[in-house]
């Protein structure tokens, strides 16, 4: 419930910021630097004279884009591989699982570091890196849950009636693991937002002048000692988004899979 409302609130912020923000996001104006909190600038302005509230709102867009794209990459490739592993078994499964095993040694940040070292820093590259990190996560989850479904009686019955593995996968396996995937997707969404913020904070992710929460923290850090609040807001926004998504994930789990939630 709470998770849902926080997520909805952030979506709303992103939507509004597409059309309107209370202040300037891209323009640089020395005249309006470091303005304190006022009726016009609710959270003040930064060292480039941009309105902090507007930046936060526009940053929501960025985080949501990153989350959607990175999770989609993970979902498509990961679920595909997981379903394949589970349908084919044998060496295909072994190969896919071993591969996802050692990719676990590379968290999003590390793979992003490698990728940006080659392709150079940038928003798109960081999204790809986070997306790639999501692939083994979903591949493992999909395979694990799909294997459990393959042993069910109705799947046995479908196989006995001569249906092909591909058809069974589409008709029986996928619908049955969907709720687990949705729950995991929310959690990965939160992780993606965190990872993107970290990369942008390090200067490897979203590049200026695009607004991004991680970027804002990076820019605020040099001024940390005399403009501390400027560093506090964007981190708060990240924490709020991640908190909301995690709660949403828990809530969805309760709704979609009561059996799982009871175990927790």
């Amino acid at each position: 419930m709470v998770g849902g409302s926080i997520t909805a609130f952030l979506l709303l912020c992103a939507l509004i910021s597409l059309f309107w923000t209370p202040g300037e996001v891209y323009g640089i104006s020395i005249a309006t630097r470091f303005l304190p909190v006022s009726a016009q600038h609710w959270l003040g302005t930064d060292q480039f004279g941009r309105d902090i509230l507007s930046l936060l709102m526009a940053g929501t867009q960025n985080s949501i884009t990153v989350g959607v794209v990175a999770v989609s990459i993970g979902l498509f490739a990961g679920v595909g591989l997981g379903l394949l592993a589970s349908a084919r078994r044998g060496w295909t499964e072994e190969l896919i699982m071993r591969f996802s095993d050692f990719s676990f040694a590379f968290p999003a940040i590390l793979s992003a570091i490698m990728i940006t070292a080659i392709l150079g820093p940038g928003g798109v590259n960081s999204i790809i890196a986070i997306g790639i990190y999501n692939v083994p996560v979903f591949a493992r989850l999909t395979r694990g849950s799909a294997n459990a479904i393959w042993t069910r009686e109705y799947v046995m019955a479908a196989r006995a009636s001569g249906k092909g593995k591909f058809r069974i996968t589409i008709e029986h396996i996928l619908p049955n693991i969907l709720s687990i995937l949705i729950v995991q997707a929310t959690i990965q969404f939160a992780i993606a937002i965190l990872a993107e913020a970290a990369l942008s904070y390090l200067g490897l992710g979203t590049q200026p002048p695009h607004p991004s929460w991680g970027r804002m923290l990076n820019e605020a850090q040099t001024l940390m000692f005399f403009q501390p609040m400027q560093a506090v807001y964007p981190g708060g926004a990240i924490a709020l988004a991640v908190f909301g998504l995690n709660l949403l994930g828990d809530g969805l789990r309760d709704v979609l899979d009561p059996r799982l939630s009871r175990k927790r």
């Binding site: 965190l194 940390m224 501390p228 990240i238 924490a239 991640v242």
Partner: peptide, 22 residues
């Protein structure tokens, strides 16, 4: 703890510096 999971560690680092160091 749910809140703790949501906090980006680098932001927490900034907050810790502001409070315990500054």
């Amino acid at each position: 703890s749910q809140l703790g999971i949501s906090i980006p560690n680098f932001w927490l680092a900034v907050l810790l510096i502001l409070y315990f160091a500054v």
